[in-house]
Each structure stands twice: as C-alpha cells, then as structure tokens.
Design a protein around this nucleic acid. Structure first.
Length: 446
DNA sequence: TTTTGAGTTGTTCGA
DNA sequence: GTCGAACAACTCAAA
C-alpha cells in the first residue's frame, strides 16, 4: 500500500499530534518529511540551531525515518509525494501570513498532480479565526477573547495512532550540521515541563515576573517548534493538584495571550510589520542610529535594559517582563519605531514567533489591538527594583556591576566607589525622554 | 437600539 | 511610606 506523506513544520513531536494520527489512519505507512526552505533555513540564527537540533531529536525518536529535503516547498513536497507514490499529504495547518501563502502554493501544486493537502489541527488549543464576537467580527481586546476562549474549550490530547509504521522508501538529504543546542526536542521539553509542574506552577503567580528566578516554564521555545502542543499543557494543568489555583489560572491566561495574538494576526496579516491601528500613523519617530545600536548591544547605561539585551544575545531568550522593559525603552526612551526592535528580537530569539513578537511590540508601542495606553511608560529603574529586588539578574548579565551589591545595582550612577569600570553612562535621561514621548504621542493624537 | 460600566502587565504626584 | 487620582480612548457585553 502506498505511503502517506506527513509534512512536518512547527509540529516536531510524536505525542498529541492530530495530523500524524490522520496520516496513520489513511492505512499505509507514514513518510515524515521536513522541507528546508532556503528562505528560512539559510539564516544563521539561534532559531535555526534549535530547529536542526529538534529535527535530530525527532529523527532519533523514529529511528532515522525522517526525510529532510532542501528546496522550495511546493516543488519538494510534490516531488517527495511522487517518489513515495502517495495520494495525499497530511499536515498541521499554519496561520501566519508566510505559512498560509506557502501552503496555498503547495496545495495548488499538489492538486495539479491530482493529490490533496489535508490540514488537521493547528499549533493552538483553539484555531486562529475560530472565535468571533456575536456580531461576527474578530475580537480586538484580550479579556473578552479570553472568556470566549475558555468557554469554547478544546479537545483533550490526541492519542498516539495505533499500528503506526514509518515508510523508508524515499531518500533523505540528511539534517545539516548545526550547533548542539541544549534542551531541544520533545523529550527534553517534556522534562522541563514536568519540572515546572512539580516545582514552580504553584508559585507562578508570585514568581512569574521575577527574571532573577528561573522559575517560569520556558515553554515558549517548545511551543514555537511544536515540541509540545498547548492542548497537552492545558490538560496537564487541569489534572494538576493546583488546577484551581490563581497560579494555574494565570499560567493558562499566558497561554491565551499567545492564542489571542495568533488570532489577531489571522484577521490582520499586515500587522506583522505595520501598525495595526492607524491612529498613531502620524507619530514622529527618531531615525535609528547609535541609540538602536547601544540598545542592541546592551550598552544603554540602564542596568535592567542592558541585562535583558545581553541575555537575549547570550541565550536566545529573554524573560517576558524584561522584554516589556527593553521594548518600552526603545520605543519610549529612544523614540524608535517598534519594527526595528521587533526585527532584532526575531533575529535572536529562539522562540521568535511572528504573532507574539509583533503584537507584544505593538502592545508596548501603543499601535496594536488592546494596546497599552500611550502614557504607560515603563521606568527601567523602578521596574528593576520591583522585579529584580536584589539586583541578582542585573549582576548575572552585566558583569561590570558585579561589585555593586544588592538593589543598588539598578542605580549605579552617582556613587563615589567608581561604579563605572567600563559600564556606560546612561545614553539618555529617562525622565526627560518620558516627557518627550508623551509630547510626541499627544501631537500624533491631535 | 442605545446606554453604561468594566477592563488594561504603569508611573507620577500630592495629600 | 502609603494611597488614590489622574493620565484617554475604545472595545465589548450586559442592561
């Protein structure tokens, strides 16, 4: 019997995988294919490193059955389907502008050959575009969306298919060499998740905003690559002893933010790189220059900002609270248009997700759906004192400040013990730039 | 159909 | 130190 192709993309797992189940249900062997699209795969980024490591992990888990081919998806998928003698290609639906356009091209190409592309499931508990208000339009505000999302509910995790057999009839080009990445792959993600459930979920409400404590789940990366499905996480939380706690509700709410932003992008594809709301289109921005560069390197002279930006470069990850602080600094202290910052984040984040990244930025910049009010300007010092109360996070990432003990590390200036030691002076005065930001927003609104 | 009130991850100021 | 008000505007759902 002919094989069925399972075209995997951001679903690099075996558990809770409805498209895999559908492919297996077709009756024949399943041929798992990953296409290295040169448009994405040639960029030397932390995300690519993670992708390759995760592919190796998946390939190991299925005894080397993964077929990896390089090229344009519409050509490669059709070619592999032909080689395998398949009459259908199964996949998990994608909802980003790039993914939708690509899948449309692949679908049309396959249909020309008399084959079908069958999309089952999405990387979300509730597929983007599913929830609409009573008047039939999309949600624009998080809270009503989250109520509708909870009320809608979701199915339990998909069981493993029975009698699954992998096809080994098509040659693979192999997975390109890449840096070894710690924690890539489904099993590793599951271990991290179990540890979070056992040790940290109960304190999530109290500790989630603390970048000095490594007690968040860090599930953004596994969710980005589909090493775990959010449905799995939601089911595990529902059966957890702390399921009814405020901590659990808060964690579920964070998952919902991810789903909300995917939904917004579904309805507004151009919001990936352009202001969602035209209200601030006349906003006066500063040209990115030395300020952008200092921000990117973590040399602004504001310890909390610099710690975050350096963590990003070193780890390919940044604590969510610090993402808001650093983003606010670029947009409101340096007055630089948010896509410059979003692009930098996306270039370095292992979890870089177009929907969450762009809309998180637009939330800070005040240009998005359900955006923060324009007068909400983060104070990098106050935020540091509040969420890194002992200065541990700052000292971890800004070694120049290691001799400044305690919370004083957030305000190293004006000291007579020579704090400088190579740490830059503040590139701007926050109080003055806050006023300038408010002035520009006022002018743009007028 | 229209009105009303709640919501939204912050900061600053002044009592 | 602590606390409430002010800082707008707009979406959404209930009344």
């Amino acid at each position: 019997m002919a094989a069925t192709v399972l075209w995997v993309r951001r679903d690099l797992r075996l558990r809770d995988h409805p498209a895999l189940r559908e492919a297996a249900a077709a009756g024949g062997k399943v041929l798992p294919l990953f296409v290295l699209d040169p448009r994405l795969a040639d960029e030397a980024t932390p995300r690519r490193d993670h992708l390759l490591a995760s592919l190796r992990s998946l390939d190991d888990a299925i005894d080397g059955a993964l077929v990896v081919r390089r090229g344009r998806p519409e050509q490669v998928v059709a070619q592999v389907a032909r080689e395998a003698g398949a009459d259908s290609v199964h996949t998990t639906a994608e909802s980003t502008p790039y993914g939708r356009a690509r899948d449309g091209r692949v679908r049309r190409r396959l249909e020309r050959d008399g084959l079908s592309l069958v999309a089952t499931g999405t990387p979300y508990a509730v597929g983007p575009g599913t929830l609409l208000k009573a008047d039939g339009t999309a949600y624009q505000v998080f809270t009503p969306f989250s109520r509708a999302w909870r009320d809608h509910g979701w199915p339990g995790p998909a069981p493993m298919p029975r009698g699954l057999r992998w096809a080994r009839t098509v040659d693979s080009e192999g997975i390109p060499d890449g840096r070894d990445v710690e924690g890539a792959g489904e099993e590793s993600a599951r271990r991290r998740w179990k540890r979070f459930l056992d040790q940290h979920l109960g304190d999530y409400d109290a500790e989630r905003d603390r970048p000095d404590l490594d007690t968040t789940s860090r599930m953004s990366v596994p969710l980005k690559f589909g090493e775990l499905h959010p449905r799995t996480l939601l089911a595990d939380i529902a059966s957890h002893a702390a399921a009814r706690s405020q901590a659990a509700r808060t964690f579920v709410s964070e998952l919902c933010w991810r789903e909300f932003y995917a939904d917004v992008l579904w309805h507004h594809p151009t919001s990936a790189w352009a202001d969602l709301k035209p209200a601030l289109s006349s906003m006066e921005y500063s040209e990115p220059g030395a300020g952008l560069e200092a921000w990117q390197k973590g040399e602004t002279g504001y310890p909390m900002v610099d710690a975050g930006m350096r963590q990003l470069l070193a780890e390919g990850w940044m604590h969510n609270r610090v993402r808001m602080i650093t983003a606010s600094f670029l947009v409101k202290d340096l007055h630089i248009w948010w896509p410059y910052g979003a692009r930098h984040f996306l270039a370095h984040l292992r979890d870089g997700d177009i929907a969450s990244n762009s809309h998180g930025w637009q939330w800070v910049a005040g240009t998005g759906t359900d955006a923060a009010p324009y007068f909400r300007v983060f104070n990098p010092v106050t935020q540091g004192l509040k969420f890194d109360p002992d200065g541990e996070y700052v000292r971890r990432w800004v070694p120049e400040l290691r001799h400044v003990s305690g919370r004083a590390a957030h305000e190293p200036w004006g000291r007579d013990d020579g704090y400088a030691e190579g740490y830059p002076e503040r590139i701007v005065d926050h109080r003055a730039e806050r006023e300038e930001a408010l002035r520009r927003y006022q002018a743009a609104r007028g």
